[in-house]
């Protein structure tokens, strides 16, 4: 499965547009992480627990999007975008969407 956030794929032609596919996830870290983050707010620096959370969420949202694309019989997703929203403290909603397409390699 080719996943890009551009509208075209170099060397490939889009044969068929299957439509919008999307994946979302809302994840939270345990309380210990939140407390650690609170302490980190004193001296600054990276909050690796929350970075991990962001990476996990992004990965899961993408996976769900790709599963949908596979179901539609697509072999690529183009023009992928991410958005987020805050639903509650310590949790993040990550939403990935793109257009599932069937592509063919140019000869």
């Amino acid at each position: 499965m080719i996943v890009v956030n551009t509208e075209t794929i170099p060397g490939y032609t889009i044969r068929e547009v299957k439509g919008l596919v999307q994946g979302n996830t809302i994840r939270a870290k345990h309380l210990g992480r939140d407390v650690a983050a609170g302490l980190k707010n004193l001296v600054g620096g990276e909050l690796s627990g929350y970075t991990e959370l962001l990476i996990e969420s992004r990965r899961q949202a993408l996976e769900r999007m790709l599963a949908q694309a596979e179901q539609l019989g697509a072999n690529a997703v183009v023009n992928v975008r991410f958005t987020t929203s805050a639903i509650t403290q310590g949790a993040a909603e990550l939403y990935a969407y793109g257009t599932a397409v069937v592509t063919e390699q140019e000869s």
């Binding site: 794929i9 170099p10 707010n41 004193l42 600054g44 990276e46 929350y50 962001l54 992004r58």
Partner: peptide
């Protein structure tokens, strides 16, 4: 074939 790459970070402000 090329693919999507991402980079993420969370940084706290200090007091």
């Amino acid at each position: 074939p090329c693919g999507l790459v991402t980079g993420e970070v969370v940084i706290a402000s200090d007091y």
